[in-house]
Amino acid sequence: MDKKVEEIIKQTQLQLTDLKLQKPVFGGRSGKHSEHLQPLLDEMSEVFRSDPSAEW
């Protein structure tokens, strides 16, 4: 893991804004999620749930 993110970004024309100014998006670790997760889980488990007694 020698390549540092900064090292990589420095080799590009991308700017890295100051991380201290960023307001981290927390909540996921304690089960508070965005509106995207439940639809993802519903889609992923659709076949699994179509017949709960089944072995696929």
Binding site: V25, L41, F48
Partner: peptide, 18 residues
């Protein structure tokens, strides 16, 4: 993995984004 609901998952929000 396949039967928990969203509020039972502990992933960061970053990975669930479309």
């Amino acid at each position: 993995a396949f039967t928990r609901n969203a509020n039972q998952f502990h992933n960061c929000i970053f990975v669930e984004l479309p």
